[in-house]
C-alpha cells in the first residue's frame, strides 16, 4: 500500500459536507463509475445521482449524492453536489417511500416528466445503498 493521498472535499450549496485525506475514490460519472487515485490528471466531470465510495485509512466509506460535478487538480478532488449525505444522515424510510413513488410514476408513465422520475429513482436508490438497505 502506498502512502500517497489526495484531499477529498465535498461541498453543497448549503454546507461543506466533508474535507478529508483519502487514498482512493469511486464516483458515479455520467458514463459509469470511475475510480480516482492520487496524482490523477486534472479533470472535470459531470456526476450522476449515485454513491461515492472513498477509502480513508484502509476503510471504505460511502456517501449519497444527487448529481453534480467532480473537479480533480493538484491532488485535490472537489465534489460539487446538489445534496450529499453521509450514511448516518440518510433517512431510509423517506428514501424507501421516494423510491416507491418514483417506481410508481415510471410504471404508470402517467404523463409526468419521465426523466425527472428516473433521476428521483436514482437518488432514492443511492440513498438506500448508502444506508445499507439495498444490494450493490
Amino acid at each position: 500500500m502506498s502512502d500517497k493521498t489526495l484531499t477529498l472535499e465535498v461541498v453543497t450549496p448549503e454546507r461543506k459536507v466533508l474535507s478529508e485525506e483519502i487514498t482512493s475514490l469511486i464516483v458515479p460519472a455520467i458514463e459509469g463509475y470511475m475510480g480516482i487515485l492520487p496524482n490523477h490528471a486534472p479533470m472535470i466531470s459531470g456526476l450522476e445521482p449515485g454513491v461515492i465510495k472513498y477509502k480513508v485509512a484502509g476503510e471504505y466509506k460511502k456517501m449519497a449524492i444527487s448529481g453534480g460535478f467532480l473537479e480533480v487538480s493538484d491532488n485535490k478532488a472537489s465534489i460539487l453536489a446538489n445534496t450529499a449525505e453521509l450514511a448516518e444522515e440518510v433517512d431510509p424510510k423517506r428514501a424507501q417511500e421516494a423510491k416507491e413513488r418514483a417506481e410508481q410514476r415510471l410504471h404508470n408513465k402517467s404523463g409526468v416528466d419521465l426523466i425527472r422520475a428516473e433521476t428521483a429513482l436514482k437518488r432514492a436508490i443511492a440513498r438506500l445503498r448508502v444506508a445499507g438497505r439495498e444490494k450493490h
Binding site: A29, I30, E31, P42, M43, I44, S45, G46
Partner: peptide, 10 residues
Amino acid sequence: YIFDPSPQTV
C-alpha cells in the same frame, strides 16, 4: 483539463 464525457456536456 480532461473533460468527461465532453466539455459541451459538462
